[in-house]
Design a protein around this nucleic acid. Sequence first.
DNA 1: CAAAATATGTTGTTAAAACAACAAAACGGA
DNA 2: TCCGTTTTGTTGTTTTAACAACATATTTTG
Lengths: 219, 219
Amino acid sequence: MNTDFLCGTALFNGIKKEEINGLLKCLNAFTKKYGKGEYICRCGDTAENIGLVLSGAVIIKNDDFWGNQSVLAHIAAGQVFAESYALIKNQPLLVDAVAASKTEVLFINGGKINSPCGNLCPCHKKITDNLLRISALKNVRLSRRILYTSSKTIRGRLMSFLSDEAREQGSRKITIPFDRQQLADYLNVERSALCAQLSKMQKDGILEYHKNSFMLKTQ
Amino acid sequence: MNTDFLCGTALFNGIKKEEINGLLKCLNAFTKKYGKGEYICRCGDTAENIGLVLSGAVIIKNDDFWGNQSVLAHIAAGQVFAESYALIKNQPLLVDAVAASKTEVLFINGGKINSPCGNLCPCHKKITDNLLRISALKNVRLSRRILYTSSKTIRGRLMSFLSDEAREQGSRKITIPFDRQQLADYLNVERSALCAQLSKMQKDGILEYHKNSFMLKTQ
DNA sequence: CAAAATATGTTGTTAAAACAACAAAACGGA
DNA sequence: TCCGTTTTGTTGTTTTAACAACATATTTTG
């Protein structure tokens, strides 16, 4: 097991290299390899394990009753998936996890995290804290996206998104980490319609922009 | 302090009445009362405390740069708020918390949860586990809502929502926990447009419904 | 039960976004 | 610098949802 890699992940953050192997044993961890397109877990399964992507990538997707498919997330190496489900009992998966390419996954038993190895070892506690942080951060990110997409107009979505960015960056002059296509996907709108709306907002004098630099204006 | 009430909350679940007072002390807990409309915390603050609503209710809201306001959540008695922010360092609040009525809030230091009282007391661990469960559950709920609202059409949103309900209820005949207005708000669409779309879907033969009972049909 | 209140469904109009197709600008090597 | 590529912006058309106003059904309650 590549302990260096693991120590660099958010899940094992703060845990020493030499502690890893003991910890993995006590968490019932095991690894498994998947070919491209292979299912890692399926909708309806009861996820007992947290998945940590060691190499490759995982796609989280959902098929509805009539067969329409939608991709919910891409999980890169070093990131975890299915953690929310593994930590709640009796909550079957509502999504599928599929290997996006040749992928290796480390599985960690979710129950073992809640009820540790008898002796409350300190690095066990670290995992819990790390998970709590990962989960809280994800929460903030999800809540934000819901906020930004709650307006029914593209202009409304842009205004709430840009406002928060300005707040975060502490200035009304901001740079965003998306190109137009990514921003459109994030806000759940059409790219060309987004461009058109931005240009209208500039004409209306509520903002100015160039590429991904924006300047919000009070009138 | 009403220990019976606290034991019934998700945050203090599994903790014994007689343990509560000691625990509260070790978590630096304190209570505060607010009048209707009073701000509990403001956007930009660094939330150090988890808030637990003891009585009344709290509204989580957001104002954008240009003054548009939107309500993100209503927190009822027994539920927590600001927990995600309190658990992550250096993440200033992007929302305001306002008392919806005369409200009393119990605050618990987020840092104290991560670095406990020296002796790793077992009920301290319970709080962490409870928080992890609360956070994971919230995650699942938020992810779901994002999934359901990711389609650009009302029909698409309905199909993904109803599919999941059918999966959860283990049948293609389901009952939903919303009336039309609530469902429309949840899916972020107009009520009357929702009604119209439902009726069109019935005409198209992909479902049948009466009030909040639905029957999904394969063709 | 009848009246009032609430919830659901229908329809026509208007506003907005999706979509498509293309123009212009910016970028990145060769 | 020039050419190919990618990104961004523009415009017209079509689709869809919002909106408004009202009809019908259902529930509540005096």
